[in-house]
Write a protein that binds this DNA or RNA. Sequence first.
DNA 1: GTCTATAGTCAGATAGAC
DNA 2: GTCTATCTGACTATAGAC
Lengths: 201, 201
Amino acid sequence: MPDDRNSPKQVSSGGRERILEQAEELFRSRGYNTVTMREIADAVGIRQASLYYHFPSKEQLFVSVNERMFERHRLGIEQVIGKNEENLRSQLHAIARWFLSQPPIHFLSMVHTDMPLLDAENTARLTACSSNCIFEPICQIFTQAQQRGEIRQVRPQLLAGFFLSVIESLPLASTFVDDVPKEAIVNEMILVLWEGLRIES
Amino acid sequence: MPDDRNSPKQVSSGGRERILEQAEELFRSRGYNTVTMREIADAVGIRQASLYYHFPSKEQLFVSVNERMFERHRLGIEQVIGKNEENLRSQLHAIARWFLSQPPIHFLSMVHTDMPLLDAENTARLTACSSNCIFEPICQIFTQAQQRGEIRQVRPQLLAGFFLSVIESLPLASTFVDDVPKEAIVNEMILVLWEGLRIES
DNA sequence: GTCTATAGTCAGATAGAC
DNA sequence: GTCTATCTGACTATAGAC
């Protein structure tokens, strides 16, 4: 029976789930290689060696953390898409709002810096997971907008990649542009993207 | 007098310059933390300890490598901008072609993963250097296009960040979209961007 | 300028008590 | 499930010969 003394937020359940939460925050903000098992243990409030009861290796912990995170994004994205059936613009705004409500993924760093340190098998798992959970759902809304005749025929995969790269570069962009909220930046860019794609009637 | 036996490309001069070349390639492809001084020394063909005759620390080597790289990009960008005075679209295509002719920078990974491991002073140096060499020149061409009345009034900093984020995500994007050359992808996205920005006459 | 040798750290992981 | 203690290996950097 977990005691839950001064639990930081919500339930936060005990054991494994608490480790996943703290590890996610650390991996997210500093990357796989830089974060040590010791730091994760400290954040959880246990000893470094105790982590190995729940996860067989740092690598497996990292994979579990990120599969969990990608799945959460899949749920979030599908939910906000479901609420905005009508048109591409409002769907894009809703997805952008979803991403802004979550900590950034830093997907490019993950692919470039973290994944090459993992087994080929784990790299493949995470790549497939990110594609299913994030890339594919966004591709779909562009495809559907094209089927409705709302936008021009540009490869949906490119548009999804384009859109995601803007989202991902937001943390950096907002340090270059002072005093403009991220929401405003992303709205401005969605407008440009949409104007560039729409079919003038 | 350097001997230059089997020099891989061009002059490649001896000593310090050879180290910078090899270190750049390694840091670029695997990041600051992952690359070891031993690997760099192996690539150059000397012993690990010998690197410390030319550079006082791994961190200083990393800073020197990247300042040199950013300066090279500044020259390249200013040169291709100079050749295409007329309009935004051809300037963007020229800059994109320049970036595609060079190995990717992975700027987001650098900011997110590498820089936090450096001294505050070195982080500031590299940040300023990247801004001067890459960000500012691209901002300028958007500003000038607006002054010519070629495109709408959208913050040039956002447009530069947007454009660069597309360039940076190209290595990843082209793994998701098979059999389409990077040139074609970037041209398609520049067209969308330009259509979204131009002032219909 | 480059070498050998090594100091000094710190990481991930395991063994076994409780 | 969590602990203490420890193994093993890898890395940056220094000392000093040549």
